[in-house]
Design a protein around this nucleic acid. Structure first.
Length: 203
DNA sequence: GGATCGATCGGCT
DNA sequence: GCCGATCGATCCG
């Protein structure tokens, strides 16, 4: 299966976010493939997006968002969790897509171990959960997903048609009305489930 | 099913 | 010193 090239990420962030649904995120861990189908994402676009970490300008922490497309932006939050973003658009413009949920495909046993034996439906359904399931931490911040020897990349998978995509406001965003109401969350409807445009991305 | 709360680190309005 | 692009436990119904 072919890997997504840099041109895929070097587009409008909403286009990339929508197009990432159905693609396959692959993590090579000790030579083993851990992978999952991308089923929920959110876009964070520019310094004017008051929900984005880039809203206060460039810092050491968010530098990856300002970097070239096709790289990872991994941050540590609440003293507990890591979250994975894929950087989009052009270098110098801070934008990225947060991966919020995967459908596990390969290496599920290993993911169960990494997740501490929690129920399977909680393996990769959440930005913090999927990072733990794939053993992703800040070592992957600024990693190039398009480098030939990368341990993290995205494969073409099977794109999702519009009939199976739900769009809605982003989760966990507070404060600014424009940021709260922007319909920049995309998720795949799976067997009629997961079709909740606003609250409770869980389960 | 839903609401609430504590954990616990690092970066900074 | 404060608080976050979250999670999981716990309580309530």
């Amino acid at each position: 299966m072919a890997r997504l090239a840099r041109e895929f990420f070097a587009r409008d962030t909403l286009t990339v976010a929508r197009d990432l649904l159905g693609r396959v995120l692959v993590r090579l861990l000790d030579g083993q493939r851990l992978s999952g189908r991308i089923v929920e994402v959110e876009a964070y676009i520019g310094e004017d997006d008051l929900a984005s970490h880039a809203r206060c300008g460039r810092t050491e922490r968010n530098a990856a968002m300002f970097g070239p497309p096709g790289h990872a932006y991994v941050y540590f939050i609440y003293g507990v969790h890591h979250c994975l973003n894929l950087v989009t658009e052009r270098e110098g413009f801070p934008a990225a897509v947060l991966l919020r949920a995967l459908q596990p495909l390969e290496g599920i046993e290993r993911m169960r171990t990494l997740r501490g034996g929690l129920p399977d439906h909680q393996l990769t359904s959440g930005p913090g959960r999927l990072c733990q399931a794939l053993a992703l931490d800040r070592q992957f911040d600024r990693a190039d997903l398009c480098a030939p020897d990368s341990l993290l990349f995205v494969e073409e998978g099977r794109p999702v048609d519009d009939a199976n995509v739900v769009v809605g406001p982003r989760i966990g965003v507070r404060g600014d009305l424009a940021a709260i109401s922007a319909p920049w969350r995309f998720l795949v409807r799976v067997n009629g489930e997961n079709a909740r445009p606003s609250q409770s991305a869980r389960r």
